[in-house]
Amino acid sequence: MAAVEYIGRKTAFWTVGRLRIAGVIAALAVWELAGLSGLFFNDVLPSAFRILRAMGQLLVSREFYEHLGVTVFEVLTSFVLGAVTGTAAGLALGISRRAGDIFEPFIHYLAPTPKIVFLPILLVLFGVGMGSKIALGSISCFFPMALNIAAGVREVSPTLLRVGRTFSLTRSQTIRMIYLPALIPAVATGLRIGLAVSIVGCLLSEYKLARAGMGFLAGQYGDKFAIAHMLAVLIFIFILASLGNAVIARFVRLPGPGDRGSVRLAFDK
């Protein structure tokens, strides 16, 4: 609606496009000026050009791809594990009202706890290698997935379920033919938040203690005070996260922020 109002005022200088370009330029300028200002230690905020060069150097080094491979493997494995178990739990809690009444509070209240504190236990159980990272990533991903699916199941229209009963569908047919199609928005939201938190889970545990992976690599550059390279790794991590998001958006039609009039945040009902 604001857009309509806006188009009416063609004379305004600050159009959306110009504002966005100005925003990017301003952010870059603030970064460069802060780096030059001398307020920060030397080289803490390297110029964007040096970061770009570091990104280029990483892209042609073999080591980078080894670390990238480790992280991508960890994230994907934990994402799949968390999404599958979360979906199963969410379906069970949503379909059986009794199970939902009893067990959903556990998941609801455990969801916003900082999962990283489990890492010491997971390190003992699964070792310093990929196992502990995958475990933390899956635990993180499980909660948003289960909660979104359970809520989605409860929002499935009773009319559809009655239609299903009229056709005397079996339980598995009801799930496949009624619940799953109606659940696509919930699945999309769950997957999107789930992917973000599995990335956080895997990467934070790599920062803490690891022998390989992007988080490990960023930490190593940080220790060597190679800040441009460290930032280059961080930028690749964020590019990876948004790529994952884009892939989910492509395969599952997302209810975009505009459709609902409000942005859906984690822990907001």
């Binding site: 604001a2 159009t15 504002l19 990467l203 934070l204 991590i237 964020f238």
Partner: peptide, 23 residues
């Protein structure tokens, strides 16, 4: 106009794993 231009960016930031910037 700023609301139009930046709200979607803000939403992206709200769901981005910003904690990974910790190094």
């Amino acid at each position: 106009a700023a609301g139009e231009a930046y709200t979607s960016w803000l939403a992206a930031l709200a769901s981005a794993p910003l904690v990974l910037l910790y190094p």
